[in-house]
């Protein structure tokens, strides 16, 4: 008897399985709809054009992209205002993400060496801080770094400003844009912007690094120590290579997250150093009201972020292969 004969006529698919397939299909359709429709609309609108006083109109024009890369008056005149904003977007996001990861790494490593109970306390605390909104955090730092009521005032009152002037450090701070002729100042400055952005994503960095570091076998570091490695050598030659991929992944994730930062940039960054995210908001909801151009900026920002992610992935693959 053949196998087919043994099985008999084609078995009926049970109704439960049929329904399961339908539900699965439906879920995929909803997921694709939610992901693709907003992005598709932004892409379509980015090719539209602004109608003065009447919002925007459907079109298929590359004028918004041209404006982004070479300015509205091209070819008569070329401007790089929006490319500059993209540069600041990337710069803030890269520096703040790297700063957050670099500072979160030793903290998380030490945290994973503590007792289970202490680790749980830290994780609960860090997860709780995630409930704080960007607006709340920026408000806090705005007060701390405010020229009239924050650290600059404290520095002046406590004599630190005078000490800085006496020792010559005040001139250095002025060169760095962190002092006016009378006192130190943090607003507006790249320092304050990066500091706040890093603070904003720091708990995410710890939470993302925690699983990899808690799984790291402590005997790896101990073995290196017994072979003559000093603490920094252990970190450089054993711990960092062991968590290279999570480090790269965390940095990229924070980078993408920070590309969209808005409140911290508007409060702490000099207007000449504002980012694409701020410009997009201005175009979509702010004073400029040019939705097609805002949409084009969004697409460029997305493509730039994608390019960064691909680059990061290639770098990590290369380092993995070369190790």
């Amino acid at each position: 008897m053949t196998v087919a004969a043994q099985i008999g006529p084609m078995a009926e698919v049970p109704p439960a399985l049929r329904w399961g397939a339908v539900v699965n299909l439906l879920l995929w359709a909803i997921a694709l709809l939610l992901c693709l429709v907003p992005f598709g609309l932004v892409l379509l609108i980015s090719f539209g054009h602004k109608v003065e006083g009447a919002g925007w109109d459907w079109a298929f024009s590359s004028e918004n992209y041209l404006r982004f890369f070479v300015g509205a008056n091209w070819p008569a005149e070329t401007t790089s205002l929006y490319l500059g904003q993209l540069y600041w977007s990337m710069r803030y996001a890269v520096v703040a993400a790297v700063l957050a990861v670099v500072t979160a790494l030793p903290f998380t490593y030490l945290m994973t060496r503590q007792s289970r109970r202490a680790q749980a306390r830290w994780l609960v605390f860090l997860l709780a801080t995630l409930s704080l909104s960007e607006v709340f955090i920026v408000m806090g730092w705005d007060i701390i770094l405010s020229n009239n009521s924050g650290l600059p005032m404290l520095f002046a009152a406590s004599g630190v400003t005078d000490w800085l002037k006496d020792t010559g450090w005040f001139d250095v701070l002025r060169d760095w844009g962190l002092a006016n002729p009378r006192n130190v100042k943090f607003k507006t400055s790249e320092f304050a912007t990066v500091l706040t952005l890093s603070y904003l994503v720091w708990p995410y960095a710890v939470i993302l690094l925690y699983p990899a570091l808690s799984r790291l076998d402590p005997s790896l570091a101990e073995a290196a120590r017994t072979m003559g490695a000093r603490p920094w050598t252990v970190a450089r030659t054993v711990i960092l290579p062991a968590v290279r991929l999570p480090l790269m992944g965390t940095t990229l994730l924070l980078f993408v997250f920070l590309l969209g930062a808005y409140v911290a940039i508007t409060v702490f960054a000099d207007p000449s150093q504002h980012t694409t995210a701020v410009s997009i908001y201005e175009n979509v909801r702010g004073s400029t009201l040019n939705a097609p151009f805002g949409a084009a900026q969004s697409v460029v920002l997305l493509v730039a972020a994608g390019a960064f992610l691909v680059l990061g992935q290639r770098l990590s693959r290369k380092s993995q292969g070369g190790a």
Binding site: S219, L220, A223, A224, T226, M227, V238, P241, A242, A323
Partner: peptide, 17 residues
């Protein structure tokens, strides 16, 4: 790191990278 004692660990602790 200053003792110059070689040690073999239970998990061997070899560096995977």
């Amino acid at each position: 790191h200053k003792r110059k004692f070689g040690m073999v660990f239970q998990s061997f602790a070899l560096f995977p990278h």
